[in-house]
């Protein structure tokens, strides 16, 4: 064999050796460096059943996608300052992505924008004002409010006023829900009553007074805690007022069964949790992503045990 061919032989042999080492190294790397990614979830409140269901969804997604999740809850339910501080702390702490249930404050816009430049940020339950680029996983709260208004209109009492029971601070999803509600109740008198926060313990008395003042009115609670409190007040007073609301808990279901609550708007919280984490993973993997809409239902006392409703009301946990 000529000298040229011998040189060629050794060159190709070298290339093969390099490929072998590369392949071996990549296998070794795949086995050794597959450390799970860290995702932080900053929620507004952790003591609701809705949140518990959402967490189940997040946990399931974490298992499916091989992600470590840490949950952080605000000490004060709607504190923008605390949420900004936690967001910054989690990113500095090495989180690869953050899932945020944002409070309703414009103060959050800039910090979230800055955080997005470092890691993927997903908004869960509601969006942040003025941040179009933020991917949101939430129900269409306007449509949900509108659907509940439609359910209320089935009672065919056109002149009966609707009293909206609002907390002192509203989250953006509550605001959207209210917007939808007002759109749906067009032509009907709507009165928004701002109550103290449920945590304060004064809400029960305030709602009682309202029931006493307007016993024939339609009452709408914008969240599960307010709805439970209002239902307890109604039960205590034994009035025949129509009580509607948004949110889900076993107590609300029981109240629905007892017809103390006429109907409630519920979202698929498990889906919301699961899809929020999936969206975070997709963003980490630079996949295309857009806002995700979660399905929601209006459930009244007659259709609680319909299979579809049953599955949303009683998560498989």
């Amino acid at each position: 064999m000529s000298r040229k061919k011998v040189v060629l032989f050794f060159v190709v042999l070298g290339i093969f050796c390099a490929f072998y080492l590369l392949l071996n190294h990549s296998v070794h790397l795949t086995q050794s460096t597959a450390s799970p990614r860290q995702v932080s979830v900053i929620c507004r409140s952790a003591d609701t059943e809705e949140w518990s269901t959402m967490k189940q969804g997040i946990d399931r997604a974490a298992k499916d996608f091989g992600v470590d999740v840490s949950f952080i809850t605000l000490t004060s339910r709607n504190s923008a300052k605390e949420q900004i501080s936690l967001l910054s702390r989690e990113i500095d702490g090495g989180a690869d992505a953050v899932i945020l249930a944002p409070v309703n404050s414009t103060a959050l816009t800039q910090p979230v924008y800055s955080a997005q430049e470092k890691v993927p940020v997903i908004a869960m339950q509601s969006s942040t004002q003025g941040l179009q680029s933020l991917q949101t996983v939430a129900c269409d709260n306007v449509r949900m409010g509108s659907a509940l208004a439609k359910e209320m209109c089935r009672e065919e009492l056109p002149n009966t006023p609707a009293v909206i029971l609002c907390g002192s601070t509203m989250s953006s999803n509550e605001e959207d829900f209210l917007k939808g509600l007002k759109q749906g109740l067009k032509g009907r008198p709507v009165q928004c009553s701002t109550l103290t926060d449920v945590d304060s313990g004064e809400t029960f008395a305030q709602v009682k007074q309202m029931f006493q003042r307007q016993p024939g009115a339609f009452f709408v609670a914008l969240n599960a805690e307010m709805l439970e409190t209002a239902a307890q007040a109604k039960q205590a007073l034994g009035v025949q007022a129509h009580l509607y609301g948004a949110g889900r808990s076993n107590q609300i279901v029981s109240l629905l069964e007892q017809k103390i609550v006429s109907a409630t708007a519920v979202s698929n919280d498990y889906n919301m949790g699961y899809l929020s984490l999936k969206a975070a993973v997709d963003q980490m993997e630079k996949k295309k992503s857009s806002n995700i809409e979660i399905n929601s239902l209006i459930i009244n006392s007659n259709d609680i045990y319909q299979p579809q409703n049953e599955r949303i009301l009683f998560p498989f946990v």
């Binding site: 279901v253 045990y305 299979p307 498989f316």
Partner: peptide
């Protein structure tokens, strides 16, 4: 599997 909906439960427990 379904949610039991027969008996009154003071603790508002629902079981699959």
């Amino acid at each position: 599997p379904h949610v039991e909906n027969l008996y009154k439960d003071p603790d508002n427990q629902y079981h699959w």
